[in-house]
């Protein structure tokens, strides 16, 4: 029973990766919108874009990690 609960929990935690995908899409989409409005400034901000994506994605990875822990380590 406990293992099954852990698997359910893992599934719920796995949703977090999808939500993190929303965040990444948000970052990239807003960057693109801004870049299309002012393309000359876009090149200098790609580093910021990647940092933003990395931060958003890190949280998704955390939830994936939680899912893995629930699956294999609990």
């Amino acid at each position: 029973m406990e293992g099954e609960l852990a698997h359910i929990g893992a599934g719920i935690a796995g949703l977090g990766t999808g939500i993190a995908a929303l965040g990444v899409g948000n970052v990239a989409g807003n960057f693109l919108a801004g870049a299309l409005r002012n393309p000359s400034a876009a090149a200098g901000q790609t580093a910021t874009l990647f940092i933003g994506i990395a931060f958003a994605e890190a949280l998704g990875i955390f939830s994936f990690l939680v899912a893995l822990l629930l699956m294999f380590a609990v």
């Binding site: 293992g3 698997h7 893995l68 822990l69 699956m71 294999f72 380590a73």
Partner: peptide, 21 residues
Amino acid sequence: MADTAVETGAEASGAGMPQLD
């Protein structure tokens, strides 16, 4: 399916994730 994974995974790596060994 998950059970299989758990069992095989547990068998293979002993204590779950190899990263936490």
